[in-house]
Amino acid sequence: MPLDREELLHAYRVMKTIRVFEERVHDEFATGEIEGFVHLYAGEEASAAGVMANLTRDDRIASTHRGHGHCIAKGVDVRGMMAEIYGRTTGVCHGKGGSMHIADLDEGMMGANGIVGGGPPLICGAALAAKVKGTRNVGVAFVGDGASNQGTTFESLNLATVWNLPAVFVAENNGYAEATSSRYSVGADSIADRAAGFGMPSVSVDGHDFFAVYEAAGEAISRARDGGGPSFVECRVNRYFGHFEGDAQTYRGPNEVEDLRANRDCIDLFRVAVTTSGDIAQADLDGIDSDVDTLIDSAVDEARSAPRPGANDLLTDVYVSY
């Protein structure tokens, strides 16, 4: 189903928010003010935005260690996310999760995940819950090319088929699992081809192309909703930053990222597509850019001035009751 003007503007806002959020975190991380590990999603925005444009709030996703983009696209509060990354009580996880564990179950976001391949089994569970409850909701597991090699992913693809679950597995293949190329670590010509071994339809799309992702994911998600069982979507993407902040990316080819930014940037491609074909003007998008800049500025300012959790917070929320 083609997207209407509002939906297109929303998709742009999502992608732009992710981009500005990630670039800002990159800059702020360099100042030393942000602690721990952060894994940035910049460059892959069309994948998150394209998949999530097919989901409702009650659908569920499980994310990866590179989860900021999925969170934003699924509707998690951006200010709360920034505060979480800064380790503040106002963070969506009250400063107890950090970048790698941002979750908001009310928004259907079951968590970024520090374990590569941690999410697919969980999404089988979310999909099972939808099936048992008869809600027509779906579960979407995001994995990378790295997790596409994990046993948990294989087991989950199998289980999803065996139980005919309303689940979709989206493999965001950005070419690198940490510092190792998928050309080395993936023992198959195509990640998407693996799905056939589990009796599941699959497709591989250019993940820089929002519309390609939107359509491929849409087909898979509709099939799941209609009781047609699980599907697999490979999005071929690229990340602009390193595996984590501080990664000098010396394993990447010369000018690899510069070329991508100049020629294959998903946001640029989206702008061109919507301003040439539809009734969306550059000015509409510029207005969103300015909103987003303001939002991220204020998110950072709020996060910086928010209190840090203290001794009282250390012991809470281990159990519901103990």
Binding site: R60, A62, L105, M110, G118, P120, P121, L122, I123, C124, G125, A126, L128, A129, A130, V132, G139, T152, S156, L159
Partner: peptide, 9 residues
């Protein structure tokens, strides 16, 4: 994992 995910759902 599915049991865990279903429990969280």
């Amino acid at each position: 994992g599915a049991a865990v995910g279903a429990a969280a759902s």
